[in-house]
Amino acid sequence: MSVQPPRLQEDATTVASTVAHLIPPAPRPARRPVKRFAGASVNLLYVPALALFAVFTVYPLVSGVRLSFTDWDGYSPSWSWIGWSNYARLFTDATFRSVLLTTFVYGIGSTLVQQVLGLGLALALDGKVRGRSAAKAIIYLPVLVSPIVMGTFYYLLFQYDNGALNDVVVALGGERHAWLSTAASGVTIIVIVNSIQFVGTSMIIYLAGLQSISPEYTEAAMLDGANAWQRFWTVTLPLLQPAFATSIILNLIGGLKLFDVIQVLTGGGPGTATSSVSTLIGTTYFANQAAGYSAAMGVALFLIIAILTVLANAALNRRRLEQQ
């Protein structure tokens, strides 16, 4: 079923435009240097932000790309240019390949979980629900907490000895379980912890999206006899497309860059089974003393995220245009 949106707003815009053409243009005010200066001063406000962006984003990026063509060990005063060797090594490094795969699991897994939970919570809290503000605050609160703190909290939960979860298991007559000891359980727990922490962001984005949908659309659908599921599927969901795009891309980037929670929960272990590319970059730089190779990994991750983001954005925009 499809619902034709009302044309009231569009008609009003057309009328306003027509009227505007009929009104003679007002005489131009005399040019005064003060106004030009005022415009310039507004532009100058960008400078501090641009300077910070240049120092903390552009310079490290350029420096990282430069470093990726060297064999620098990360601390010695001497190094050599080695061309594309570090990038060639990426293609033959089995550890990098397996860690990249795990990183995709973090990125895609976290994104999926956060979309489902975030949208569900947004739908539950959209409308006049008792305790709505308190619930929103509680769900959003973990976003404000440092991932290190979040990771430590869950480490204390999943720890073998003294872990709260195992204490409960033992109290119920079960045996302690090493929750973080395998790749599968470690990766799953990390995805869950990351999703729980940032589900509040998705919820807020979807809530904003839901509140921007005019009730007239759903009312029209109701008049056409659409049930709740049909209204959600054919009216609400298509009109949430911009929110989907924002939330999915933000979560995907966050998941692919995951670092802190992994570091605290498993340290990337056992072995490198729960490592992400970000944690591998850290250990390659400092522990393996291969700063150049580590920088090449960083550039590769940057390109992967950029390409995936562009593709995801294009796909979501195309879907939105098709629905319009």
């Binding site: 060990d73 089995a94 550890t95 000891s181 395998t182 790749a183 990337g268 272990g269 056992p270 072995g271 490198t272 089974a273 250990t283 522990a287 393996n288 003393q289 291969a290």
Partner: peptide, 28 residues
């Protein structure tokens, strides 16, 4: 060589955790 310690740790760790065989870890 200087810089091998992390590899020594992670490969031994993989074996202890049952995530990698001794042969695969040795290869790494």
């Amino acid at each position: 060589p200087n810089g091998m310690w992390n590899t020594v740790v992670t490969t031994a760790d993989s074996v202890i955790a049952g995530q990698s065989s001794p042969a695969a870890s040795t290869e790494k």
